[in-house]
Design a protein around this nucleic acid. Sequence first.
RNA 1: GGGCCCGUGGCCUAGUCUGGAUAAGGCACCGUCCUUCUAAGUCGGUGAUCGUGGGUUCGAAUCCCACCGGGCCCGCCA
Length: 552
Amino acid sequence: MLLFDDYWKKIFESIRAVYPEVNEGDIALDRSGHCDLTFRAFQVMKKRALSPDAVYSQVKEVLGNEDFMEKIESVGGYVNFTLKPSKLMEAIWKEMEGTSRYPDIFQDPERVSVEHTSTNPTGPIHIGRIRNSIIGDSLARLIDRYGYRVTTQYFINDSGKQVASLYAGYRKFVNSDNPTVYDLLEGYKKANEEMEAGTDMNSDVEQILRDYEKGEPETIEGIKKACTVVLDSINASLSRLGIHIDDYTWESDLIRAGDVDRIMEDLEEDLEEEEGARYIMSNGRKMFLTRKDGTSLYFLRDIAYHLYKFQNFDWLIDVLGENHKEHAGHIEYVTKDLLSQEHRLDFVFYSYVSLESGKMSTRKGQIVTLDELYERAVEESLNVVKVKRPELPEEKLNEIAQSVAVSAIRFHILKLNANKPMVFKWSEALNLEGDSAPFVMYSYARASSIMRKLEGQSHSIGADYNKEEGALIRQLYLYPFVLTESLKGLKPENIANYLLELTRKFNDFYTNCPVINAPQEERERRVLIINAYRTIIKDAANIVGMKILEEM
RNA sequence: GGGCCCGUGGCCUAGUCUGGAUAAGGCACCGUCCUUCUAAGUCGGUGAUCGUGGGUUCGAAUCCCACCGGGCCCGCCA
């Protein structure tokens, strides 16, 4: 069995034997729909003053007899290679037959940490933060698909000003021993209003911070209690999207366990001081680690956290908002250059989500919560499925609506390139047609429906594929390359876009290639194609966190 | 002021890393197809100075420079 890589290599080497000057980039996967692989002969033609026909016949001479080659064509300055779909199908099927996976070659025992979400526990999670969660969770799934041992991580800020004001607001404005997340959010908003107005709320908050770092039990209990209420709400919301986080690290634990102090000792030589506050120089900037009263700053606690991760993992990935770019650079400098950590460290940044009315702000209460989005998405899906499938029992309808809602939300947020700013619009988020999760899911359900009707049907690789079959097979075949590119660039959005492309190819196939009533030979090879398609859709959909349905 | 990111039909995007063929989709709008496997689908149509101006190249949405517009950062906040 040969993979595209091998076919590419074979073609590259054969052509290079004739024209030693060709570059690797001159032989490429075609993206314009003309063929599978193409040789761009412009340089060779120019250098050797050859006509396209002359190049074509020389290439044909060395590659024309390969058994994997369907045809070689000359178009302008291109020499186009089309491979036999049966060879591609054979490669897919050989891999899939025993394992139900394509590709089945990945395995890596390294331990990987994916830190995502890590939002301050000051209110319910909103649709801006979930961009982080969705990217992070999908990345973790992608890396897990490669066979790495993945752990997802959440760093809980329970020792900064934000949570101190959450607690201050709770103490002053919330009259409940069992507050809800919304009670706490109200108190937090009021506390922030007062701080902006310049009341003595400011000194209250500072006092809380000092008490906390000193280990004053009542303050510690109070803050933890407030944070836990918020964190429970965040986790409950995330779990509706199928997002589960494995490990939680509280900032305060790193302070009390002495991690933070040990780092100050390790950095001794690099520390400088200004009015009692300590800092290090990083990239020409003073990066403060402690305040003049000796309490730790986020930068120091985050260094401690990364050190903890470096000790337990071979590869660290942090998913961070774009506002953390500078911060990340400093973390990298300190841990790698000053503290000599050698494991791999990568950052994935994403741009912010805003509303049409402007920025979101938990502090000001200007947010769309994940819960609200989820509930509206379920409602919308339910309305649609009730019309489409009135015969289904209510329980089934609800199940479909929930799967569609989760998938649609995740897909909508994920498919956009992470460093593009996103303006959230209800009409787009709740659109269940076009380039959306239900578009993908629906095609899958139709494929499954065919298979149910052909239970026990035999299949075969066959030959003489038509245009739509060939295009679909090629797209299936490309899956491992998409996975590899996606991992290499840490871009799970590639998988979402691949799913759309694959679905379009399947829909072409579906409308043009009857299966159930086809003659035996056609039917058998189409059964095989559908099997492969369903396997890959399930695999890819799982990576982006979609819930695929057999029927909808 | 300095740094990073984004700019592709009316709206939302893919393609940019690694330059290559008539710039690929979706939404909206107009029209088509349910007595063939689920119409959340299909097919056709309208609609693009790829932010602007230079440069490199046989060839630029893609690389380089400048500028414009939007976002983010430049705290003893996180």
